[in-house]
Design a protein around this nucleic acid. Structure first.
Length: 283
DNA sequence: CGTGGCCCCTGTGGGC
DNA sequence: TGCCCACAGGGGCCAC
């Protein structure tokens, strides 16, 4: 569900609601959604069972909200850190005091502050909360991620593509190489740059990388300004839908005419993901 | 090292 | 109206 722009919007909401304030209470509603400090990323089976509220920032004064790619972290002034990853269906809800919320199912974690509550909701549970991390552990965990896509430079992209025979789209989606791009914005950026998603990465030259890196930055920034893409169920932290989906040129438009040349867009599979491209504009 | 296949989950929309 | 299937914005693991 959320890619970098949607996650960035969530971070903005968390900043407004949490930074400078104190976590008064924590409620863990679904324990197996929370992983402990020693658990490797994504290992559901090892999710710790003895986590306590302190591991989830109880009593902490919140100092900062950080983001790298699609991952977020909430840091307390005393050094405690909790990281969030929303997966496909994860959602963060900032609920001002008194607001009635319609969706109360699948809420796995709640933070209560003086003036608002923050809920983590995730029906499919592909996301995760990593508790009990300190700054060093977070840095270690995030060191597995590539650079943040919002500031991707052509030279860095060239380095990722060099020597790799995999499709360029597979490279863009690999969070170890580049953090933040998902299925929507990969297709949109490749279309804007005029590059076929299935081209072997190594065939991209400096100019291709320059166009593609620029396209990625611009697409992501425009999507952040538009509040992210709401395809089905994404909601910002305030409950509002995004509008970036209104600007999509290829994602979700297989069979429809290309906005540039009217050629019917083609739906294919690349890197096991549904992919849409223009047979005429992208090479 | 790269890749295809499968898995983790729930919800929704389309076809019948 | 109900049923079944395909599919969804993510990512880990395994065998090859």
């Amino acid at each position: 569900m959320p890619e970098l722009p949607e996650v960035e919007r969530v971070c903005q909401g968390l900043r407004a609601a949490m930074v400078g304030r104190t976590v008064r209470a924590v409620r863990i509603r679904r324990r197996d959604y929370i992983t402990g400090p020693m658990d490797p990323p994504g290992r559901r089976s090892t999710r710790a069972s003895r986590l306590v509220a302190r591991d989830l920032l109880a009593g902490g004064a919140i100092a900062a909200i950080e983001r790298r790619g699609k991952q977020m972290a909430i840091r307390a002034e005393d050094g405690r850190v909790v990281a969030l990853h929303l997966g496909m269906s994860g959602e963060v809800m900032v609920l001002p005091k008194g607001r009635i919320e319609a969706h109360t199912d699948h809420v796995h974690l709640e933070w209560r502050l003086d003036e608002a509550q923050v809920w983590v909701r995730d029906p499919r549970r592909f996301g995760a909360v990593w508790a009990g991390l300190d700054r060093t552990a977070l840095a270690d965990r995030w060191s597995l991620l590539g650079p943040d896509a919002l500031t991707l430079r052509a030279r860095a992209l060239l380095g990722m593509a060099r020597g790799r025979q995999r499709a360029i789209k597979a490279v863009l989606l690999d969070q170890r190489l580049l953090a933040g791009v998902g299925n929507i914005y990969a297709d949109e950026a490749l279309f804007r740059a005029g590059i076929r998603p299935d081209r072997p990465a190594a065939t991209l030259d400096v100019e291709d990388c320059d166009r593609l890196a620029r396209a990625i930055r611009e697409i992501l920034r425009a999507a952040i300004r538009a509040g992210g893409s709401t395809i089905r169920d994404y909601r910002g932290p305030d409950g509002g839908a995004g509008e970036a989906q209104l600007k999509h040129r290829v994602y979700g438009r297989a069979g429809q005419p290309c906005v540039t040349c009217d050629t019917p867009l083609k739906g294919v599979q690349v890197a096991q993901r549904t992919t849409v491209r223009c047979p005429n504009c992208q090479s």
